[in-house]
């Protein structure tokens, strides 16, 4: 007999299965050869080292933003600003990757990434401070900030970084010294993976093993209780915004320097909002972010492969993502079942 405490795990599994079934249904409707296409979607990402590499490369930015959003959600902050920060920090890191020519060797990417992270932290603190000091709705301000940062970033790209000789709307080339090293031959997996895994472990320790993490968790569960206990909840809220902004900013910087040789985002890349999805699948647990980012990367690469090798466009994946978000945050989904279990247990105890 299932117990109530396994309920969340069962529900997450059910959501993933439903999402996959919907993917199969769409493929069946659209594709001439549905079975073959489903095969590509499921197996191709794991078929070669290169493809597995693609999955991991894709998972790196998702882990960064997923971790950042997890911490914010943990503090009960509905802040979706990781999107704009990820983008803008990428611009900042690019500027340094292009113009900072005097720094040699390993120091160049370190400086560029730290600059991007710090800018991210500062930008993220703004909605945090507005929330903590004046209770301004962090959701609305962070969403507005996404658009503001995108506008400014695009302006910087178009007016200051743009390489007129290039064919597309891209920046000048980064200095070779600025780019992150590849760590696995045959793939484009870069040192960003090590950075993000280390960050995840640190975040786990911070959240569960330190008094600051304790304050964050208590503030998130019940801010009134935290305040009553003597915690400075305003400081906690600003702190979590700083940390989340730092992580999201680092993600943008690492992604740009790890995967590209020019800055080339002319639209928001979407990783910030994907981060919300990763965080939800991970139930806001830092360590679970790894698996949930890998899963999301896996189905995305699957969709990419599918688009390349069959007749179904990769945009299908956004439909699947939408389904996952709608169901995973649906409190009532399968709740009737939990209630029945609770009723049974209560009767058994009575």
């Amino acid at each position: 007999m299932f117990k109530v405490k396994y309920f969340e795990a069962i529900r997450t599994t059910a959501v993933i299965l439903i999402a996959l079934v919907i993917a199969f249904l769409i493929i069946s409707l659209v594709s001439e050869q549905p079975v073959k296409t489903i095969g590509i979607f499921l197996w191709e990402p794991l078929s070669t080292l290169g493809h597995i590499g693609n999955v991991i490369e894709m998972a790196i930015p998702l882990m960064f933003t997923g971790l950042a959003v997890s911490l914010l959600f943990r503090a009960n902050m509905f802040n979706l600003g990781a999107e704009g920060i990820f983008y803008f920090s990428g611009v900042v890191a690019s500027i340094l990757a292009i113009h900072l020519t005097t720094l040699g060797g390993w120091l160049h990417p370190v400086v560029a990434i730290l600059a991007g992270s710090l800018v991210g932290a500062l930008l993220s603190a703004i909605p945090g401070i507005l929330k903590a000091k004046w209770n301004a709705n962090e959701l609305v301000t962070s969403l507005m900030f996404n658009n503001i940062l995108f506008g400014i970033g695009l302006y910087l790209l178009n007016y200051h970084l743009r390489d007129a000789k290039a064919f597309a709307n891209v920046s000048f080339k980064f200095e070779e010294t600025a780019r992150l090293a590849k760590i696995l031959p045959g793939t484009r997996i870069h040192t960003g993976l090590i950075i993000v895994l280390a960050l995840i472990v640190l975040a786990h320790l911070f959240l569960y093993k330190t008094k600051w993490g304790y304050e964050l968790r208590m503030t998130g569960i019940n801010r009134e209780f935290a305040r009553y206990s003597g915690m400075k909840t305003a400081k906690v809220i600003i702190l979590v915004h700083l940390i989340a902004g730092f992580i999201a900013g680092m993600g943008g910087s690492v992604e740009v320097l790890g995967m590209y040789n020019r800055f080339q985002w002319t639209a928001l890349p979407g990783y910030g909002l994907d981060g919300a999805l990763v965080a939800m699948l991970a139930k806001n647990n830092p360590l679970s972010v790894i698996a949930s980012a890998l899963f999301l990367a896996y189905i995305r690469i699957g969709a990419d492969m599918m688009a390349r090798l069959s007749d179904v466009p990769s945009e299908m994946i956004s439909i699947i993502q939408a389904v996952i978000i709608l169901l995973i945050s649906a409190e009532q989904f399968l709740k009737f079942w939990k209630n029945r279990m609770l009723l049974k247990e209560a009767k058994a105890n009575a």
């Binding site: 304050e215 208590m218 209780f225 935290a226 206990s229």
Partner: peptide, 27 residues
């Protein structure tokens, strides 16, 4: 201070009993 409203002020419902017990002395 034992507050009147144990749900709203006095406890963090989703946190463990242990976490609730140390909220004024975890420092």
């Amino acid at each position: 201070y034992i507050p009147e409203d144990r749900m709203r002020q006095g406890s963090a419902g989703d946190a463990s009993i242990a976490d609730n017990l140390i909220s004024i002395r975890y420092r």
